[in-house]
């Protein structure tokens, strides 16, 4: 077993500097549409958006990040809508009672997460899995993935919540001790994505259980999920990019 030990030592530390410093390594995030100018070309992009993530409200374009599925169609050849290589996307659902500021402090250095797959395509789960791997290593931040909801402080849900997973999701939520929180990960969990609402899936997690933090993206990269966790525990501020705009999923509990 010495060989493995040496192999590990020789590899050194590869972990991201985030959240202490910015991580701008190429490929860590696909970015998000960051609309600023209402040019004619930008308005033309609104009709190209297949999921109504870009909406024209009077003379302004509003981005609904909860619906953006990263199809890049609005970016086009000439860059009609600018995409920003950011990853701090997570947003807190306001006026929600179950997690007060006091709880955020309780959780701040030891948060146990139970992941629930409510019909995810696999990429959100893959990105969540990266969190435990050397590049992101969330243990260093006091976050732990646990196999049972009975030990979990936070439920991390991906997928549009299929009809068949509804009971399992509710049971997992009920099994958690209070105080508890819910993080919705990815476009499907926020708005149903390209799948819901339909006969087989809901239109996001907040239709079934109250959501505390929403992380948009299709899928959100690991750094965005870390931002969501830090936001929940009050160690990071919500995204400036997303706060100003609409985020679907929050409407149900607003």
């Amino acid at each position: 077993m010495n060989t493995w030990f040496l192999k590990g030592l020789r590899t050194g530390i590869v972990t991201t500097p985030y959240p202490d410093a910015e991580d701008a390594t190429p490929g860590v995030t696909p970015g998000l549409p960051r609309h600023e100018e209402n040019t004619e070309r930008a308005f033309a992009a609104v009709s190209m958006c297949p999921t109504r993530a870009l909406v024209q409200v009077e003379q302004e374009i509003v981005v609904d990040y909860g619906r953006c599925v990263h199809c890049f169609r609005c970016r086009g050849e000439g860059g009609r809508i600018r995409w920003e290589k950011n990853h701090e996307w997570a947003e807190r659902v306001e006026n929600h009672s179950s997690v007060s500021d006091g709880t955020a402090k309780v959780f701040s250095r030891s948060l146990h997460i139970r992941v629930v797959d409510a019909g995810a395509c696999g990429t959100c789960l893959s990105e969540i899995e990266q969190l435990n791997k050397p590049y992101y290593n969330i243990h260093r931040l006091g976050f732990f993935v646990t196999p049972t909801p009975r030990e979990a402080d936070v439920l991390m849900v991906a997928g549009p919540v299929t009809g068949h997973m509804r009971t399992a999701l509710l049971k997992a939520y009920e099994a958690m001790p209070t105080p508890k929180a819910v993080i919705a990960v990815g476009a499907c969990a926020l708005s149903g994505g390209v799948f819901g609402p339909s006969f087989a899936s809901g239109g996001g997690v907040s239709e079934f259980i109250p959501v505390d933090v929403m992380i948009p993206g299709c899928p959100p990269p690991p750094l965005a999920i870390i931002h969501g966790l830090l936001l929940l525990t009050g160690r990071k501020k919500p995204s400036t990019a997303v706060s100003r705009k609409k985020l679907s999923g929050g409407e149900n509990h607003a």
Partner: peptide, 24 residues
């Protein structure tokens, strides 16, 4: 861990060149 490092490197490579980590 070693395999996980390589997986993330492949994801980053895909993301850096195509804009999306899973080739969407």
């Amino acid at each position: 861990s070693q395999a996980g490092i390589l997986e993330e490197e492949a994801l980053r490579l895909t993301g850096a060149l195509t804009g999306h980590r899973y080739l969407f």
